[in-house]
Amino acid sequence: MSEQADAVDLVDLLSVEGEDLAAAWVREVSGSLGRRVSAAELERELRELYEALVEALRQDAVDVHSEQMSEVRALLTELSRSRARKGFSPTETAISVFALKRVLEPVLRKGSSESVHAYLQLSRLLDELGLFTIETYTQTRDALITAQAEQLLELSTPVVRLWDGVIAVPLVGTLDSARTQVVMEKLLQALVDTGSEQAIIDITGVPAVDTQVAQHLLKTIVAARLMGAECTVSGISPQIAQTIVALGIEFEGIATKASLADALKLALRRSGVDLVAHRDGLR
């Protein structure tokens, strides 16, 4: 049996009832997706896919990777991405493909050995297409998650201007290497952008400082110094202080203060600002 003959069978399978099959497919899928995809959109997606599939089979496509399948793959990629972005599950996404198998089931009842054979062939192809859909869906989700993580990284590391010439970065949460790197780059950039000569790195919200984080901190402080700026590290909790000492990390020559307020006072003094306390408060 040549592949040519198979391909013709497959086209027959999809074309006998022509339009009706595509419509049945749309009905089958819309039942499982509810209203989150508009009826018109689903109709368009699946009809395009249907026509591309028939065309690919007419051109003797043998599997999902066939050259003739490129249009089908492109449409499926678009569909998977759109489902992933709208928050559909992998099942809800792949069902769009697998539903066509269910729609074609009635041909089995006719029972001719050719139609059963054709059904099994097409069914295998649809399995491949379904898996391709899940694959693309997963890639899109991974990309979305990575993008969100990066956004979060940006969001969670604000550099604030506390005073003319004094900037601060309050670090909150677990510092992994990637985050520390981002914070430090932002800090150095902010020194340039604001023309500040004093920077405060506040670690009040950091639960632990290991050697990697300490190394990033120290490198940033040295880099800032080269740029003519001085850094103060504030908010070192007693438990972090003890841990740093036990680890053997030396913070010698680096200004440290217990609180952000103390660090600000130091930074202001260093930049020549006099803070005068009025005994009776401000009037």
């Binding site: 639960p207 632990a208 400082v209 290991d210 007693p238 438990q239 003890q242």
Partner: peptide, 17 residues
């Protein structure tokens, strides 16, 4: 204690890395 928690977490961080 909080100090011991921090020490254990930091040691684990070093060794895992």
């Amino acid at each position: 204690s909080l100090v011991d928690q921090t020490k254990m977490i930091t040691a684990a961080s070093e060794l895992a890395r």
